[in-house]
């Protein structure tokens, strides 16, 4: 199958496809950011995308979530073509993402941050909120309760009324993941979740990722710069350099691939 390593277990291969990217190409003016990028992800997988700085990893996420419109190629989510759809519709279909540089609603409370992600599922309209109908009160209460559950899972329950911008960095990262999960995704895109974390925190993060995948039955596609995290948790990995895929396979295969070592680790070592 296109965009997948050959040697995955038949049990995994039998699952339905959730995301199918084919021949994705994107230019910024004349700069080639992504070229002929193909990846196919099946339900329940945990897939990594790695590569040195500027390899085009975040651009791939931006293309999936409709921030940019690709120059060529196709992106299918559960069979639906995503290209040309606005971002919010793509998110509402069940894809959620986090950001490399945290982008919370910094002046709002922690709870509001999560509630905003619930908005498309609020279940009441403008008239309900203006006239404070019973429907409004019921749905609002339910929304708040569900959001509080999320905060509890991420250890943020007692800070729900704090201003999000005032949280320490580690909690902001967690809040961002909580907010992404509140959009009720089936596919979660994590953009460098380990940025700025020390090895101990990365261990905690790995546990967290495993936990949310099982708890919410998610498929996870993550971009990472740090090998430690990717090598340990991903089932298989795609390696990018200069906008092109240079290798794909299970972590141990990728680790031994000379091209990857040259493009990625070699440069990393020099730096």
């Amino acid at each position: 199958m296109k965009g997948r390593p050959e040697n995955l277990s038949p049990e995994v291969e039998a699952r339905p496809v959730i995301l199918e990217i084919d021949g994705l190409t994107h230019y910024f003016d004349s700069l080639r950011a992504v070229h002929d990028f193909s990846v196919t992800i099946k339900e329940g997988e945990l897939v990594g995308l790695i590569g040195p700085n500027g390899a085009g990893k975040t651009t791939v996420f931006n293309l999936i979530t409709g921030v940019y419109r690709p120059t060529a190629g196709s992106i299918r989510y559960e069979g639906v073509q995503l290209i040309g759809l606005p971002s919010h519709e793509i998110i509402q279909m069940g894809i959620a993402r986090t950001f490399q540089n945290i982008r919370l609603f910094a002046n709002l409370t922690v709870l509001d941050n999560v509630l905003i992600a619930y908005h498309p599922h609020s279940g009441y309209g403008l008239a309900d909120s203006i006239f404070r109908s019973r429907r409004f009160r019921e749905r609002e209460k339910a929304m708040i309760e569900r959001s509080q559950e999320f905060l509890e899972i991420f250890g943020l329950a007692d800070r729900q009324n704090d201003i999000a911008g005032s949280l320490p960095y580690g909690l902001q990262r967690r809040l961002e993941i909580a907010r992404a999960l509140a959009t009720q995704p089936r596919l979660l895109l994590l953009d460098e979740p380990a940025a700025g974390m020390n090895p101990q925190e990365i261990d905690q993060l790995m546990e967290l990722i495993h936990f949310i995948r099982d708890r919410f039955q998610l498929t996870i596609f993550l971009v990472e710069h740090r090998m430690r995290l990717v090598m340990n948790i991903c089932e298989w990995i795609t390696v990018m350099d200069f906008g092109e895929i240079i290798a794909r396979g299970k972590p141990e295969e990728v680790r031994g691939n000379p091209q990857v070592i040259e493009a990625y680790l070699g440069r990393q070592a020099i730096r």
Binding site: V80, M93, P120, H121, Q184, R186, Q217
Partner: peptide, 19 residues
């Protein structure tokens, strides 16, 4: 947590649309 009814509905609507 399973997918909500709303999400399914949105997706249905999306599938039926034309360019």
């Amino acid at each position: 947590m399973s997918v909500t009814v709303e999400a399914r509905r949105i997706e249905q609507r999306m599938l039926q649309r034309r360019n």
